[in-house]
Design a protein around this nucleic acid. Structure first.
Lengths: 257, 257
DNA sequence: CAGTGGTCTAGACCACTCA
DNA sequence: GAGTGGTCTAGACCACTGT
């Protein structure tokens, strides 16, 4: 009656499949009926069955694979990133970068590829946070790709004022050594005292879909990180783009009275 | 040559429109050519032009309106939510809830609707954080809808152990009074000392699309908030679901040495 | 090879918006 | 009423995956 029948067929088919997924009749990893099967089953055209599956893909519930079928999406083990990864103690004890240290704590493995280091004009929002001009090449940009067990999970671009990076390994694409980037920034006279992180989410661009091996229906988290020294001077900004399906951010913050 | 021509027509049309959008030839709020116009323009079927627009919608770049056309999406003014909104000082000075206090600071207006208060069995993850059983009705659940200038921006479900809420206004759907929920929790002997927030993003469910008046192509941020008293006892958990297109989370966190 | 999803065509009717 | 997006049909060919 009522709503049930007013729904267009593609919605009805989608709703029915979704029901089976959330109820557990279709489990993560299970294959859905093929588009042609679904169409025959519901007395509809194949495009209509296809539209139903598209709806579920856009909700992130289903993952279609060319030539294989459409599958109930598996949520990979979640990575957690919290501010604890920036602590000097952790850096000293493990000698690792924040990302790898955090992964290690969770009993996982990962690596980071630095794909480019160059001097650039900073984006507007980065320039603002660093207090430098966005008109000229005032910063060093380092591009990094992060992998957990060989699957890409995030990209980032780190911006460091030229005055801080110049002459140090920070301005070159070379091994950053023990303790990674924050240890080198400390060497330059900028110990990390506090961070600001601004977070939002959006759909990935086509480039990001390719690079992060994600699929439509999976958003990305965009995080703008700023590092401050004990005097409150911003000395580094990083823009992260993370696969939302594998990432949880985790903040514990004292509340000022 | 090469890649340009191997792309299917729908992609080519989408890429071309995207180019115009990011270059600025098509500005936020501008109407795209109609599906029929696009089809004629490219010598393709209407469905092909439509597919191109669907691609852009799924990227969150375009918003289609039945009977009116497809428009380059306007990013509404961003709301910022930071931990500062939980400070007792702000609560005392304004007498407002964290949400309205934060909005006020940004020169904006909003309101909150509490749509239900009942005793329930807590979800697994909530029970875990509160240290209560998820088998029985150990918590009071309060559902709230948040509006900024009359547009819905987030929903949340707040869970308070029955032992803390019972007998107080927290267990009833009534005006919470000056300072709102955290003032009442303080009255009950639980002043807020620190918070933990766990953040991820995903596509909205159909119910959320309807309730938050968002459209496909706009993800939601899911935030699990836990409140701790000075002894580190968790006394309240809230699950937020926020429209990612209007929301930025903003954390400033000291780094432990 | 058969079966799958990816894409396209050329129509059709409906529901909505706006003048 | 004209124009828009929303949905559907019944075909077709391609590209990919598996056996």
């Amino acid at each position: 009656m009522t709503d049930e029948d007013r729904r267009p067929p593609s919605r009805r088919i989608a709703d029915q499949l979704r029901e089976q997924i959330v109820q557990g009749g279709l489990k993560p990893g299970d294959r859905l009926p093929s588009e042609r099967e679904l169409a025959a089953l519901h007395g509809a055209a194949r495009n209509t069955a296809r539209e139903a599956i598209t709806i579920l893909r856009n909700e992130g519930l289903v993952d279609a694979q060319h030539g294989r079928g459409a599958f109930v999406r598996q949520r990979p083990a979640f990575l957690r990133l919290g501010p604890a990864r920036y602590s000097r103690r952790l850096r000293r004890e493990t000698g690792l970068s924040p990302f790898r240290a955090e992964l290690l704590q969770q009993g996982r493995q990962g690596h980071v590829d630095c794909t480019s280091v160059k001097r650039v004009r900073p984006p507007e929002d980065v320039a603002e946070r660093l207090g430098v001009s966005s008109k000229t090449k005032t910063v060093v940009e380092r591009e990094n790709w992060y992998f957990a067990e060989d699957t890409p999970v995030q990209v980032c671009w780190t911006y460091i004022p030229v005055g801080i990076a110049a002459g140090s390994v920070l301005a070159r694409n070379a091994d950053l050594g023990t303790g990674s980037i924050y240890a080198r920034l400390e060497d330059q006279g900028y110990p990390l005292a506090s961070i600001r992180e601004e977070i939002t989410a959006r759909m990935p661009t086509p480039v990001e879909v390719k690079g992060l091996a994600t699929s439509p229906g999976v958003p990305v988290i965009e995080l703008l990180h700023t590092s401050y020294d004990p005097e409150g001077v911003a000395f580094e900004v990083t823009r992260f783009v993370m696969r939302a399906d594998v990432m949880t951010l985790d903040y514990t913050v004292p509340i000022e009275q």
